[in-house]
Structures are given as structure tokens and as C-alpha cells.
Amino acid sequence: MGRKQGWLWPILGTLSLLCTALLLFGFGWALKDTWSPSAGMTLPDPAPAPQQGGVAWADKSEIKAIAIGDSLTHGTGDATGKGYVEASLALLSKSLGKPVRLDGNLAIAGLEAAKLSQLLDGKAMKDAIAEADVVLLTIGGNDLFRSAQDGGSIAEGSGVDPELVRARLPELEARLAAVFNKIRSNNPSVRVAYVALYNPFYELEELRTPLAGILEQWNGNAERLAAEDGNIAVVPTADLFRAQSGLYLSSDHFHPNEAGYARIAVRVAQALN
């Protein structure tokens, strides 16, 4: 140990001893916090998001959109995973001549109207709706076709029993009304595009007529609710998937493919402006 290193040990020794003491203290704190936690910090109450409302679209520099609903909005069946949402907003942006920003695609595959209505009570959805100018919505397909299931494979239509659906239709329609109401109460001025249901089993002759009646009733009911509201557009899609439905449905015979979504996108954009 030469004289040159005289400074090394005091510094190194003290510093590393201090580090050890600090880490031991932290270790002790972690144990205490895990096994007998204190009350913790008090946080300010979360504030609700500011509502959009009041300002006309023409006066805005940017339109904010959100997409909610089920697998159709999620984009299931589209190999690129985009669905109709981005395409329709791009078309809307072009027709409005101003940017339209997608503030989130909150659709969850397999969602039913009852669950969506439950989600709409949560702060996350409330804020998202409150901040938006446009809501793109698909819902109901899972309610209808799942409640129709009697154990068979839904993709082939074999599990679908129209009588089961017909019996439950009033109950299911009330769920859609609840969804519309909750969106409206969270944001009085938001414009909603609701993509109506099509018949994915059009090719199956034994289901064509009974399901046609049910879908007509469902979509008619949606139209009626939309008219009561005044700022909800119901986008018809049933006719898009009738002739040559094979071209527009994906390989699961249930969801649209890219071409099918592109057709929906055009209509959604037209309905919004």
C-alpha cells in the first residue's frame, strides 16, 4: 500500500458502507410496506374529462373520434387487422377537409351489448366518450347469434336457432337502447355512427328467411332509437353481404374480409358527413 493510495480506502470504505446502509434501510422499508402497510399518500379525487360539446365541427381544427364495440370494430377477419375504422376516418377527413384523429379503438372482440353498457359506466369509457366528436360503434351481433346458439358450430350456421333469438329479441333490443342512452348522457353533442347488422348466414337457405326477419326487426329498432336521439346514424350493411357474400366475408364465414370492411368504411364516412 503505497502513499499514493492513501485516499482510496477512506473514500471507498465510507462510500460503500453508506451504500450498504442505504440498501439495508430500503430492504427494511420494503418488508415493512409489504407486511404492515401504512395509509400511503393521499391523492386528489379524479376529475371527469372536459366535455367536447358546444363547438360546431366547422370551427374545430381537428375532429376526435373513438371506436367502441365488438369484433367488427376491432377488425377481426381483416388480414391486415385494420377493419373499417381507419379507412372510414380517412374518408371522413377528406370530405371534411380537416384531420380526424382516432383517439383509440376500444373495441373488444366478442363483446355483447350488456357488457358494453357496463363498460360505459366506467370512468375510462366515460372520459373517452366525453372527449370525442365522433363515436364509431358496432354491437349486437354477439348478442343475437350467441343467444341463438344451441351447441353447434356458429361459423357454419348450424348452431343457430332463429326461434331462440326471436324469443329474446325484446330483451336484447333494450340493451342497445341502454348503450345509446349512456353514450348520449356522457356527451350530448357527439355524433354516433352505428353499423347495423348483416346476415352472415345468407348463403344458408334454411336460415335466410327467418334471420332476415330478425335482423330487419333489430335494425329497424336501431333506426327508431336513432331517430329519437337525432344525432345517431344507423349505417345499413345487410345489402353489402347478400350477393356474392363469399367475396366480402372472411374465411370464418362470419366477419367481413378486407373488401367487406372497405365497403362498410365508405358507408360510415358518408353517414357521418
Partner: peptide
């Protein structure tokens, strides 16, 4: 419960 990030760092380091 909420803890400040600084305390979290100390606990984690421990």
C-alpha cells in the same frame, strides 16, 4: 396504497 416514486426506488433497491 400509493407511495412516492422515490420511496418505491429505495424499496426496490433494497
Amino acid at each position: 396504497h400509493a407511495v412516492p416514486q422515490g420511496v418505491y426506488m429505495l424499496m426496490q433497491l433494497g
